[in-house]
Design a binder for these strands. Structure first.
Lengths: 229, 229
DNA sequence: ACCTGAACACCGTTCAAGT
DNA sequence: ACCTGAACACCGTTCAAGT
């Protein structure tokens, strides 16, 4: 039986062989690993195996795990295509810029979830936040008013994302057996609430639809004259 | 020198001594550990040491770590004092109920952060969410409209909380060296943005003040006639 | 029923050593 | 400069065994 790996080529020394690995290679491999299998798959040993080196080689090129994770988030941020903002009214354009953050995060759910974990979400989203700031200025805001409106929009988006990005059972991450909303609300003391409302509270809303309507309400309250031209 | 621990009392067998431990004792100790030192301090060995037993004893009483964490969150939820809702207009009362969630989460930051991690935030907040639902109905909403307004408010609050509850360097959790907003925005490509706005974006906002103004804007957009009586 | 001791299969990280 | 091998101090979890 032929050996498919490490066959052919000048057989060099058994130990300390030169692999020709780059820091970029390590970060790229780490990013690919997280994108395909989630943050839980990124262990130093697993990554080393993927690159066919020892764990210590990872440390030499990319530092410890925290540094590696930050590097991989920055790498994706650089790669992230600038999304275009559409809409004719200020409110519509701001909504579009916010939706870009929402869509981009869901398109890279594993890395985004990891970025949230270590508090580096704005490192990842920076270019999209800049675009949002521009349309906030175009809507008539300035200085701290832009800052406050931007942070409000970004934070509310983050709130939607923490539930949208939650690891599903199919992900392998095996989330704890937390009771679903239906069980929670049927067991709660809901005296004073109409049964119609209690029933509705037990059903999960459509996140995408709720995100849009919430953002519309929020943006209308944030922009001068509700963002109408 | 006198031995301060395990001295005095009938010296029983060296192994398999009856400790008289309860499942409640284990969950209480786990809760106390997380409240005082954060989720990172909750390891099975550490908890066992705290209770002066072996790790296997924890498993026998409380199951694995996931079950234990869920139990500890449920325990705190039961203990959480019902907070009173104040205000005369519907909008004010809804804001008060939302602020209760915000305040309660910050009063129990470590457990709340843990609950968010495993997606069990609404287990912890359930009583406060019920109170919010009541005032949403009092404001004239019904059924799915209550559900959607409640989820919007709760999710936006969650977004603020993920940054408010972020582990500080003083916590021992040693967060990764993610660059502060100032560095981020001064290095970003901010062409088209006024320098006044760029400077503002580099400074962190007051979270508490921003939470209140954001909630006011959101609630006004969510309630019929903006929540005015 | 309640608890221990030992073990298994993992982690991140460090350090002396090789080429 | 670049990489290995061995080790340290941790994890969660299981299992046979004790009383």
């Amino acid at each position: 039986v032929p050996n498919p790996t490490s066959e052919g080529g000048a057989s060099t020394a058994l130990t300390a062989r030169r692999v020709g690995l780059d820091r970029d290679d390590v970060v790229d491999a780490a990013l690919a690993l997280v994108e395909s299998e989630g943050a839980g798959a990124l262990t130093m040993r697993r990554l080393a195996a993927e690159l066919d080196v020892t764990t210590t080689t990872i440390y030499w090129h990319a530092g410890n795990r925290d540094e590696l994770v930050l590097a991989l988030i920055t790498r994706l941020s650089d790669r992230l295509a600038e999304r275009t903002v559409t809409g004719s009214t200020p409110a519509e354009r701001v909504l579009s810029a916010a939706t870009n953050i929402w869509d981009s995060a869901r398109a890279h759910r594993h890395v985004t979830a990891l970025a949230y974990q270590i508090g580096a979400a704005s490192v990842l989203e920076l270019p999209l936040e800049v675009a949002l700031a521009r349309d906030l200025e175009a809507a008539g805001l300035r200085g701290v008013a832009v800052r406050d409106a931007l942070r409000a929009i970004v934070m509310c988006t983050a709130g939607f994302l923490v539930v949208a990005l939650r690891a599903r059972p199919t992900d392998g991450e095996a989330p704890a057996a937390v009771p679903p909303a239906r069980e929670l609300w049927s067991a709660a003391d809901t005296t004073g609430l109409s049964s119609e409302t209690v029933a509705a509270l037990g059903r999960a809303p459509s996140l995408a639809a709720l995100f849009e309507s919430t953002m519309r309400a929020l943006i209308a309250g944030l922009l001068p004259e509700g963002g109408r031209p």
